[in-house]
Amino acid sequence: MKARLGAALRTQNTSLAAVIIVGTIVLAIQSQGGFLAPISIRTFFEFLAIPIIIGLAQMATLAVGQMNLAVGAIGGFASCAAAILVADAGLPGWLGGILAILIGLAAGLVNGLLVVLTQINGFVVTLATMTILAGAQYAMVGTRTIQASAWPELQAIGTAYPLGVPLIFWLALIIAIALAFAYRHTLVARQMLASGGNPLAARLSGISNNRSLVAAHGLSGLLCGVAAFIVLCSLPGSNKSIGGDWLLSSFAAPIIGGVSLVGGTVAVLGTVLAAMVVRLVDSARAAFQLDPSWVNLVIGAVVLGTVALDRVRTRRPSATRGRRRPPADAPPTAALRTVERGAGA
């Protein structure tokens, strides 16, 4: 028996995959095959790594019914902090890379703890930390761009192309697979989904919603740190603008990918596919020489369309409010053994 929600996600993934295939064909034709040339493929996937990771970072908080407005700020702050530590304080590049990830994790945990301890709305908390971190990022680097030549070992990762596809993309893919596995098989992640799906039911079963919230925000921050790591690997330097345009894209991928805004679901494949679609739109813009602003316009329209369609198609049945009549595809009550009047138990 297919889950109604599972089926919905599957059709969404199929639609996204279809869009990707069609888009690729269109671009290939338009460029007379140039789009499929090795260098073009490399570039395509190179700029896909970060969107996938930050989309997953947002998905991590959406899964518990929260949002992380600080995605760009955490990533930017972590990359600049690591950059300074390596370039100015002389830390080895590889350590800088690890620190970027850990700083992201720390920032995420702080968000989670603030949400839980102060009981302030997650929106406001991450709005505040976003402002603080963005300010701190600027305070650290000012108008400098710290050159990536300071961490050659990380740059080496960024310039590796196993099988013609950037290593950083493989990294992003591996992380996506690991996340999908975690959300399916680890207890902590299942509890996060429970907390997001029905906080009351979760609490009554002894699951700590607080822990789920902190873990989700921590995971989100960790992924932002990974994005910062990828920045260090693949971009020519780190400066105050890193992360500045991440926020909106971090929402677009999960939303288009089918992640519910009310919490309780994740859609790793959908998020990855959606990030690909966005990347394709960007490629199309370049290919057809349209103004860069068109990308944003299209993405905005698609996000809106996705959510509107979602509301029309799947009114998610809430198992917390008793429905008056059983849904059409419930196992028929008659199939369950009914009591015949007068028969013994």
Binding site: V115, V116, G263
Partner: peptide, 10 residues
Amino acid sequence: DTMIAEEVTA
């Protein structure tokens, strides 16, 4: 709308 899910703290 800013509190997408109930913030139930155990």
